[in-house]
């Protein structure tokens, strides 16, 4: 639906985006995962027609377009990272206003406003001024304000930053609803779980570059990360003679010991686990805990960027 190719953007002393290629499939949700300063907001600003790009093309339904095109703008909804609302108006007034900019008829606008407020759990407080809302409530209205005109393409820039799990779940449910109604969504986040659980496809943006993109399965394959087992030993067991344990398995698995945790990874580790454990027991090591680790986005992110997003 939306294809971005070789898109670049530099600020006076910083290259914010470098040769970005990205593809949004119609009706799918793409998660753009990246740490602070990666360039997520910059990309959304360009796609939403706010900022100019230095180079690159943006195609919408296979046709190159200018992001200032009014038909395009009419079809997109933008949830900005910062709360961008009129604090001295009520939620209801805010939504009506933002809807009116898209040429909605008053009656249609009112009906949609009511529905969105209900979906976001704010209907009862709709006539309160936005400035009297909690951070999480403001976030929800910030989302609602982008959706009144029923856009087919939605950009969400870290819409759940700094809110409690309850508000977050409300937003997740709402996003699920948007997904089932066939919206195409570009969702930026630095929360791994969001990208992993919510999005159909994931792109990792680091330091202005798209490092990798695909479904979680595709990323697993590309990343070549192996399944792993983490074995936690009692402190008294240190130091551990890894060589003695690994001798037999060295060619199949990699061993890594840090503090009391021994991480063994490689494909087929789960099947080899009983053998491994008996070897360890033969070495009279006492095991505190065994954890089989699935390949998740966290490992993948670490693999591609060389650091952990949680740090």
């Amino acid at each position: 639906m939306l294809s971005i190719s070789a898109l670049s953007k530099s600020y006076p002393n910083h290259a914010a985006l470098k040769q970005i290629d990205l593809h949004l499939q119609e009706g799918k949700m793409l998660g753009l995962l990246g740490p602070n300063g990666a360039g997520k907001t910059t990309l959304i600003n360009i796609l939403s027609g706010l900022s100019k790009r230095d180079a690159g093309t943006i195609s919408w339904f296979n046709k190159e377009i200018a992001t200032t095109d009014s038909r395009y703008k009419q079809s997109i909804g933008v949830v900005p990272q910062e709360i961008s609302l009129y604090q001295d108006l009520s939620a209801y007034q805010n939504l009506l206003f933002w809807g009116s900019l898209y040429g909605l008829k008053k009656s249609v606008s009112k009906e949609k406003t009511d529905r969105i407020l209900q979906d976001l759990g704010l209907y009862d407080r709709r006539h309160d001024l936005v400035k009297t809302y909690s951070g999480g409530m403001k976030r929800r209205i910030n989302i609602g304000a982008a959706l009144l005109h029923d856009p087919s393409l939605i950009f969400m820039d870290e819409p759940t930053v700094g809110i409690d799990p309850q508000s977050r779940n409300l937003i997740y449910n709402y996003i699920e609803k948007l997904k089932t109604s066939g919206k195409t969504i570009l969702y930026t986040t630095h929360y791994l779980e969001e990208a992993e659980n919510l999005c159909d496809r994931i792109a990792i943006l680091d330091n202005g570059k798209i490092i990798v993109q695909g479904t979680l399965d595709e990323l697993r394959t590309i990343s070549k990360i192996q399944e792993s087992v983490e074995i936690l030993l009692y402190a008294t067991e240190l130091p551990v003679d890894i060589a003695a344990i690994s001798a037999e398995y060295q060619h199949r698995f990699s061993f890594y010991l840090k503090d009391h945790a021994l991480t063994i990874s490689g494909s087929g580790i789960a099947e080899a686990l009983p053998d491994l454990l008996s070897t360890m027991i033969n070495q009279s090591l006492k095991i505190k805990k065994i954890e089989i680790k699935k390949i998740n986005l966290e490992n993948i992110f670490l693999q591609f960027t060389g650091y952990q997003l949680r740090d």
Binding site: G49, K73, E82, I83, S84, L85, W98, L101
Partner: peptide
């Protein structure tokens, strides 16, 4: 307050 950016993102 950021509303100007939002206005500019609208048609």
């Amino acid at each position: 307050t950021g509303t100007l950016k939002r206005l500019l993102q609208s048609p």
